[in-house]
Design a protein around this nucleic acid. Structure first.
Lengths: 190, 190
DNA sequence: GTTGCGACTTGACAGTGTCTACCAGCCGAA
DNA sequence: TTCGGCTGGTAGACACTGTCAAGTCGCAAC
């Protein structure tokens, strides 16, 4: 049990540390210190610092996938895509630490980590399938791809701009998100 | 002149280092080494590591603003917004190192650096003004804000997803960008 | 010709990631 | 019961980092 416990403790301490002082503040030794363990103990569960981050990213994508699926199933199918988009942005605002980690440049920069990749792909496929439903089976593939990208781009862009971009200072985020997404779904519905 | 020279050398070496091994690979001492100077010399021009990054971010926003303005003025006014959006995405693809740096979470996380902030705001205002032109002076402010956010969200989201997200493996980026942006402008034009 | 100053160097210090070596206890086989 | 190896942990060392503090050097102004 100690094994499982320490592994979780390390992950929990890590996300807390990142939340406090950014990815740069994530220190193997500080993590170990917080877990009340020697500075080398975490290495028994994670090959290196990048492995910890990768595990957190995987966690994050799993959480996101869950929320997207929940949103999809929470009402009439013809508005599922809309609900999923809203859930995407809400996830980013509710879990900024995870969300930021998930789209970290240097992570995709280094050679891909398979579990992380597939976790991301799974979340992607949820949105993709909703676009398919909306378009019907007879749509051109290029149109299908473009519409998927457009949908994801809107929600992803909105989320990151609100989190770390020029929209960070918007007063009422919820309302703004609603307005933007409504504007978008009206434009694309006809 | 040595002063100006070293300052530029430091910035050039820094961006090269970030390009090679990510923000984590940016090391004061390595930068100094590449500039052929003692490990403390850069401190004469930059208070700390964050100041170097801030300067690079400012450079990046200046470049982006230039491209947006050039795109705006490169054709008929009624399609200026479209051209600017395209220029935004192209900038991200052409200068990924700068672009990634510009929207670094931890930078906005720490207390804001005024020159950086205003450089970003300037780029933002270019897009904003194009939306204004499109909407005309009589539009409701909330609709104006929402449309600005939507436009920026699309191009920003598309750029980041292509750079570091699930669209990183798209085969023909140019074509994909064209399709997505055309789809978007068709949807919002009527 | 001295003084002052800006650009730069040298030296230190604490803190980091990670390599290597070691140790305790458990569990299954002989 | 003894033995051997695995699992999870410790301790120490190394090269490296950012940054503080104290020099040094050349040059311009008075």
């Amino acid at each position: 049990m100690a094994a499982e416990t320490l592994k979780q403790q390390v992950l929990d301490a890590s996300i807390a540390l990142v939340a406090e002082s950014g990815l740069a503040g994530l220190s193997m030794r500080e993590v170990a210190r917080r877990a009340g363990v020697s500075h080398q103990a975490p290495y028994h569960h994670f090959a290196d610092k990048a492995a910890i981050v990768a595990a957190l990213v995987e966690r994050g994508f799993a959480m996101l996938t869950l929320r997207l699926e929940a949103a999809r199933d929470a009402g009439p199918a013809e508005r599922a895509l809309e609900r999923a988009g809203r859930a995407y942005v809400h996830f980013a605002l509710a879990e900024p630490v995870y969300f930021r980690l998930m789209f970290r440049p240097e992570l995709s920069g280094t050679h891909p980590v398979p579990p992380t990749e597939s976790a991301g792909a799974k979340a992607f496929s949820v949105l993709q399938s909703l676009v398919d439903v909306r378009l019907g089976p007879r749509a051109r593939p290029s149109r299908r791809e473009a519409l998927t990208s457009l949908n994801w781009a809107v929600v992803h862009g909105l989320a990151t701009l609100l989190l770390d971009g020029p929209l960070a200072h918007v007063e009422d985020r919820e309302q703004h998100v609603d307005q933007v997404l409504r504007l978008f779904s009206e434009a694309t519905s006809d």
